[in-house]
Design a protein around this nucleic acid. Structure first.
Lengths: 211, 211
DNA sequence: TCTTTATTTGACTGATTAGTCAAATACGCA
DNA sequence: TGCGTATTTGACTAATCAGTCAAATAAAGA
C-alpha cells in the first residue's frame, strides 16, 4: 500500500558526496546539490532535515560502500605486506580516476570534510574520528599478523604504529590534493610506508613498489 | 603629506587569520571579520579587493611571521636532532595554547585552508604548495647535517625523507584537529618522527621525547 | 589656514543562502 | 474505482552573502 520508495535519497547522497569531495562543504549549496541530482528542493527537505545532516549521511553511506573493499584488501588470507601495498594501489587508482575525470586530485573525503567542519560541528568530528578508528583497526590486525610472521619487531606497539600509518597516508593524500599532484603517491608512498612500518625489504623488492 | 597609515589592514589580517584557522574559510564571512576587527565594510574593501585576496594575504602574513621562529629552530648551530624535537615542541605549544583559549585544536592553518580551497582556487593551491616546499627545505638542510654527522644512513634520499616528514607531521596535525585531541602529539610524535627519520636512539633518549 | 591624500563611514545592491509549506501527484492495494 | 501513503512540486520566506560607492573625516605638510 502507498507510493513505493524511489532512488531520490540515494541520488542526493551520491551527488552531495561527489560535490563536497571535489570542492568543499562550504562551497557546495543545497541548490547546487539539488540541481545536479535533478531533485527539487522540497524533496531534499523531505529526506534530510538540513544540509549538515545530508553531509553526515553521505559520509556514512560512503564508508558503508568502502568497507567491502577494505575487507577484501585486508583479508586475513593475504600476506600482510600485500594488504598494505594493495591499499595504496586502491587509494592511488581512485585518486587518479578522479584526477582524470575532474581535473583535480581530491584526497580523502573523510579527512577533508572533517578538517573543514570539526570546529563547527562536533557531531561530524566524532563521526570522522570513529571512521579513523575503524580504518586503523584494519592496520592493527595486519600488524599483528606481521609480528606473528616475524616480519617486524615483535615488541612493536601495534596501536601506535597503526596511528602512524594512518597519519602518514592521510598526510600524503592531503598534500596530493593541495598540490594536485600524485607523483609522490605513485612513486614513493609504498616504499616509504614499508620503511615506516619497519619491514626490511631487498632492493629488488623495493623496485616493485612503484605503482 | 596626507593622512598617515593606520593598523586597520593589520587588524584585518590578524582577525581573518584567527577566524579562518579556528573555523574555515567558508564558515567565516566578511561581515564577521569586520565586526571582530572593528572595521567597517567599506574599509575592508579599501584594503582588499575580495575575501579570497584577504585569505591569501593573511596566510602570507602568517608565514612571514613564522619564518623567524623556523630560522631559530633550524639554526645550523643546533644539533639536527634538537631541531626536529624543538619543532615538535613549537607546534605542540601553539596547538595547546589555542586549544585552551578556543576549546579547539586548530591544526595547521596552511593545510586546513589549502585543503578546503585547493579545488576552487588554484592560486591558493600554488601558494600553499610553495609554503610546503619552503618548510621542507628546512628539513632537507637538517637531514644533510645528520648524514654528515653519521646519524642516519649516508645514502638516504634527503628530498624524499623531507617529504615524508612533512606529510607525517601534517597528517598528525590534521588528525589532532579532527579528534580535537593532542594526546598523540604530546606523547608519541617525537619518537615516531625519530623512527621515521631513521635515527637510532637509546631507551633513555626515547623517554625524554614526551613533551 | 588651506591643500593634499589616505582612511573611514554607512547606506546600498542584487544575488544567494538554508529552510518552509500546502497542495499536487503517483502508485500499490483493496 | 477509490483509498491510503509516500513522494514531488514550486512558490515562498527571511536572513545572509560579497561587494559598491559617494560623501565625510582625519591628519601631515605648505
Amino acid at each position: 500500500m502507498g507510493r513505493p520508495p524511489t532512488n531520490t535519497k540515494l541520488r542526493l547522497l551520491e551527488t552531495a558526496h561527489e560535490l563536497i569531495w571535489r570542492n568543499s562543504y562550504g562551497a557546495v549549496s543545497v541548490d547546487g546539490i539539488c540541481e545536479k541530482a535533478n531533485v527539487k528542493k522540497g524533496s531534499f527537505y523531505h529526506y534530510f532535515p538540513s544540509k549538515a545532516d545530508l553531509a553526515i549521511a553521505s559520509i556514512d553511506w560512503w564508508m558503508t560502500n568502502t568497507i567491502p573493499f577494505l575487507d577484501d584488501i585486508f583479508s586475513p588470507s593475504r600476506h600482510p605486506i600485500d594488504r598494505f601495498t594493495l591499499l595504496i594501489d586502491f587509494i592511488y587508482e581512485k585518486q587518479e580516476d578522479m584526477r582524470i575525470e575532474f581535473g583535480q586530485v581530491c584526497g580523502c573525503p573523510f579527512i577533508t570534510l572533517g578538517s573543514e567542519l570539526a570546529a563547527q560541528d562536533e557531531v561530524i568530528g566524532a563521526k570522522i574520528s570513529a571512521i579513523t578508528q575503524q580504518k586503523m583497526s584494519y592496520y592493527e590486525n595486519a600488524l599483528r599478523d606481521m609480528i606473528a610472521m616475524g616480519l617486524i619487531d615483535k615488541n612493536a606497539d601495534v596501536k601506535l604504529k597503526a596511528e602512524e600509518i594512518y597519519a602518514f597516508i592521510t598526510g600524503n593524500m592531503m598534500l596530493a590534493r593541495i598540490k594536485n599532484d600524485l607523483k609522490f603517491m605513485k612513486t614513493s608512498l609504498k616504499p616509504s610506508l614499508m620503511n615506516l612500518i619497519g619491514v626490511q625489504l631487498t632492493t629488488e623488492d623495493l623496485k616493485k613498489l612503484t605503482i
